[in-house]
Simulated assay, not measured.
Amino acid sequence: MRRVPLPSVLACGMLLLVASCGWSRADDGGGEGRVPGAPAGVTAAAGSATSVHVMWNAAPGEAGVRAYEVYRGTTKVVDVPGSQHMVDVTRLRPSTQYAFTVRARGAGDRLGPPSRTVRARTPAAAAADRSAPTRPKDTTGRTVSSRAVQLSWGASRDDRSVVSYDVYQGGVKIHSVGGNQTATVVTGLRPGSRYVFTVRARDAADNLSPAGSPVRLTTPGRDDGRDTAPTGFTATTHRADGACYIDLAWDPPRADGVITEYQIQLDGTAATSLVWGGTPPRGRAHHSFYAGTAAGEEHRVRLRARLPDGTWGGYSALRTVTTGR
């Protein structure tokens, strides 16, 4: 999911259009074997005294992008999946200026050129600061398009300073902006979907304010969920040590960001949630869960993903399995 500060909306919209054109050209050749372009729209903002939030637009030719490499100076600090366009770089020093670049890695580990260099300075550490900023006031929002909304809020107060504001959707943090900003545009949303956004302020000691008042918005248009459903879904069973298990496999939906959570529905009821503890596996996903000890029982199973915008995507196809087979 790509989110941009409000003053940069027009420029970023132009950059995204260029990226879209590059994607089409890459698709013509299957996206294989080509060197990805340099990511555009790279920004960096301090999130605390020891972290910086780095964001970028999708690199031209994203169909062939397997991962992004984020560099601090000349040192690579993190790899992220090709579907992710932001990351928090942590374990930094307070009161220090850092330079960041991003490179896209395509098929065959072919590495594209670096993005332009962006800089961010971490604030001074706040010793023994246990006082959280005040709640952001007067949070408002409006839809910009079927896939974007604009949010604004009143500035929070802190006994030292507000370093950043975190934007949440449905309890999931989806974005962060600098402490001098009181507006942003959130993109990568779904048409015809209901959203609840809240904003929290953060200081240099990572103290979080209470959430501001929720903003409820519905994006225009329609979304039947098919584009956000896991595909290639299969379900089988096996027995081990007298117990029955249901084995699932699927291809994650394409999303503008990383998917870390799935909800598994068994016989029409939410049975369990699957949350990846670290970086989700690339490509096809697999999961097995306990289904009791009785053999010969028939079950219907399907699953859906929690998308990077905080909403649940569409359900996969429904599969029927019989335990003990």
Rank of each mutant, 00 (worst) to 15 (best):
S193M: 10
S193W: 00
Y195H: 06
Y195R: 08
V196N: 06
F197E: 02
F197H: 11
F197K: 03
T198C: 05
V199S: 06
R202W: 06
D203I: 07
D203S: 08
A205T: 07
A205W: 06
A205P: 01
D206K: 12
N207H: 12
L208T: 05
L208M: 14
S209D: 08
P210E: 12
P210T: 12
A211D: 10
G212D: 07
G212S: 11
S213N: 14
P214E: 11
P214H: 12
V215Y: 06
L217Q: 05
L217D: 01
T218W: 03
D223C: 05
D223K: 07
D224K: 13
D224V: 04
G225V: 08
R226S: 10
R226H: 09
R226P: 00
R226I: 02
D227Q: 14
D227H: 10
T228N: 05
T228G: 02
T228Y: 06
T228A: 12
T231K: 15
G232Q: 13
T234C: 01
A235R: 05
A235M: 08
T236H: 10
H238V: 10
R239E: 11
A240C: 01
A240S: 15
D241R: 15
D241N: 14
D241C: 02
D241P: 00
G242M: 12
G242H: 10
G242P: 05
G242N: 11
A243R: 15
C244E: 15
C244L: 03
C244A: 07
Y245A: 05
D247V: 04
L248H: 02
A249F: 01
W250S: 04
W250L: 05
D251R: 13
D251W: 10
D251F: 01
D251Y: 06
P253F: 09
R254P: 00
R254F: 02
A255T: 07
G257V: 10
I259C: 03
T260A: 13
Q263A: 14
G268W: 10
A270H: 04
A270C: 00
T272E: 12
S273V: 09
L274S: 05
L274G: 00
V275G: 00
V275C: 01
V275L: 14
W276P: 01
G278H: 10
T279D: 13
T279V: 12
P280C: 07
P280K: 08
P280S: 08
P281C: 08
P281T: 12
R282D: 12
R284A: 02
A285H: 15
A285G: 04
H287A: 13
F289V: 06
Y290Q: 11
A291M: 07
A291Q: 04
T293C: 00
T293D: 02
T293P: 00
A294I: 11
A294Q: 14
A294N: 03
